[in-house]
Design a protein around this nucleic acid. Structure first.
Lengths: 181, 181
DNA sequence: GCAACGTACATGACGCGTCATTTATTTCCA
DNA sequence: TGGAAATAAATGACGCGTCATGTACGTTGC
């Protein structure tokens, strides 16, 4: 059942406890198990979500997230940089993705009079129908694999842990190279 | 701070409590927050891990996982199907990935005398050096973003939750279409 | 011993994500 | 006002991941 040691592969040899020279010490057995479980869960859950969306409605999880943000907006239109802020995607990823979604007719572009560089991304009717179609099944899968297996308290804790990790990611994105604490 | 409602986008209108017709009910506010936090954390953590590995050693997280399994093996060689079993990847993903890793000299192929269809994937010296180089920094990042923010108990709980979700994924991979409970 | 079927693995096409670079516009300020 | 720097966004190249399909070998039943 137990997988191999992952992020601290048994490189220095199994029985020498020497910590890696440059960075942190290796992971101990508990940490290894936890990390592998998380990694595996994360990858497979994402794959399952993508597969369902793809089969059910031809959308990817990424499409879905873009469309959600658009539908959550009164005018159903956003500047790309607003979407980028909301999604925390790399700029070029967003740009590529919007190009593809536009090609498929899920969104459209409008000129931005206030800023000649920019544009508005507008939800099309096709886009709205796509996410309307996709949503029930998607929520179903999220429930089935994620929430149905977790108690209310566990969900709350998971949110706290996620937020804490996000904070660390935010911090260190800004911080140049040095240590954290 | 709070993102928009994700997997239950406000499609049916904010104030009508109607559940989606085909599948499960929408997520409530707590669930939405938790789900968005998890999704965002997951995506950004994976991106951070990949970025570090890429910059530090030219490996991707996927490369790293393959190499770990090989180094964890006495002979440093495995049949592709064994790797597939360990990684839980799709077969074609593994095949493509091994092709690319082979092209880069990280692994090599050997004939399999016992089974004419199969092959062995062998860790090369270059592959071993790559993961040896990459490991300390990788562990460092895993610690910095993941373990350093979590208590021992939280890590243990996260492992349990991950395992539980994995079980559900395993179950329903087998199960045809119907409901779970 | 051969046909049918299953297994191990590869491949082509195509969408996705990242990095590096480019273009157009706006803002800042001397 | 004019030039430098910042900002909004697009693009090309290239590796990754999935689906569908192909190929070669093994296994099983008759």
């Amino acid at each position: 059942m137990d997988g191999p040691s992952l992020p601290g592969p048994s490189l220095p040899g199994p029985s020498d406890g020497a910590a890696p020279g440059r960075a942190a010490r290796w992971l101990d057995a508990d940490e290894q198990r936890a990390w592998r479980a998380y990694l595996s869960m994360q990858g497979r859950l994402a794959a399952a979500l993508n597969r369902q969306l793809q089969l059910d409605s031809g959308l990817s999880l990424a499409d879905y997230e873009v469309l959600v943000h658009l539908t959550d907006t009164p005018e159903a239109r956003l500047r790309p940089y607003e979407l980028q802020w909301a999604l925390q995607w790399e700029q070029s990823r967003l740009s590529h993705h919007l190009t593809r979604m536009r090609r498929r007719g899920l969104v459209d572009r409008e000129e931005c009079s206030e800023d000649g560089r920019g544009a508005f991304i507008v939800l099309t009717e096709k886009g709205r129908q796509a996410i309307t179609t996709a949503a029930p099944g998607h929520v179903g899968v999220v429930r089935r694999f994620f929430f149905d297996g977790l108690s209310r308290e566990e969900v709350a804790l998971l949110e706290r842990l996620s937020t804490r990790i996000l904070d660390r990611l935010d911090d260190t994105d800004a911080t140049p190279e040095g240590d954290v604490g």
